[in-house]
Amino acid sequence: MPYCTLDDIKGQLDEREIIQLTDDADTGAVDLDNVNRAISDADAEINGYLGARYAVPLDPVPAVVGKYAVDIAVYHLESRRRGASDSRKERYDMAIRFLTKVGEGKLTLGVNDPEDTPRDNEAPQMASSNPERLFSRDSMKGF
């Protein structure tokens, strides 16, 4: 199951733009092969970052992953045709930073999190018992 669809991409780009980015044969229509390749590439990138901590592909797809999948797929569509704009590159970079932090365990997806996910905001825990004391004032006499 892909993390985003053509309809999701249409939420960021109008159909005319999608045609410009995908229609290599000048048919005047969206080339679904190029769209699906960009979506597949985005999925592979996401799985690469998250696969060390989560079972991939993710099912169900967390909303944040779907959002970033669209950003990555659109970045790939723009890059293949005319080069990505600065704002598109910034969105792509933000997605990769987020995925990197999730992969490192610094952030979570909020669903199906691994049990061993470290939490930076948790206070350190104190031990409830101490080991037996080895030295005291009395045992150090004579040194």
Rank of each mutant, 00 (worst) to 15 (best):
T27N: 08
S139N: 08
D8F: 08
P57V: 05
V35W: 07
L134H: 01
R82I: 13
D8Q: 10
S40P: 02
D43V: 01
G103I: 09
M1P: 09
G83L: 07
D120H: 08
D120Y: 11
N36C: 02
R137G: 10
E45I: 10
I39K: 06
A73Q: 07
S87E: 15
S136Y: 04
Y3Q: 10
N34F: 04
A55P: 00
A42M: 03
S139R: 11
D31G: 05
K101N: 15
D86L: 13
V70G: 03
Y75L: 01
D86P: 01
A29N: 14
G83C: 04
D71A: 15
A55C: 00
T117L: 13
V111G: 01
K67Q: 14
T100A: 11
P118N: 03
S128N: 10
A73G: 11
D113L: 03
M140Q: 12
I18W: 04
L58F: 10
D7T: 12
G142F: 08
C4K: 06
S85E: 13
E90V: 08
R97Q: 14
F135V: 11
D120M: 11
L109F: 09
Q12A: 03
V111Q: 15
V35P: 04
N130F: 06
A69E: 00
S87R: 14
L50T: 07
H76M: 01
R81F: 07
A29D: 10
R82N: 12
T100M: 10
D113K: 05
A73T: 06
R16M: 11
R119N: 15
I72M: 05
T5F: 11
I46N: 01
L50W: 02
I9Y: 06
E132L: 11
G11S: 11
D86S: 14
M126C: 04
R53A: 04
D26C: 05
S87N: 12
D23N: 09
T5P: 09
A55S: 14
N130G: 01
S40C: 02
E122G: 00
L58S: 10
D93Y: 07
V30R: 06
I9L: 15
L134G: 07
G83A: 03
D26F: 12
D23T: 10
A127K: 14
S85D: 09
A95V: 02
Q12I: 06
L6F: 11
V64T: 13
G28E: 06
G66Y: 01
L107N: 07
A55Y: 07
Y3S: 09
P2H: 14
A52E: 12
L77C: 12
V56A: 01
V35C: 05
K141D: 12
E78H: 08
T27A: 12
R80I: 01
S128M: 13
L58E: 11
A95F: 03
T108N: 03
N121G: 00
S79F: 08
A38L: 03
D59K: 09
P2C: 05
M94P: 00
N34P: 00
C4E: 06
E17Q: 15
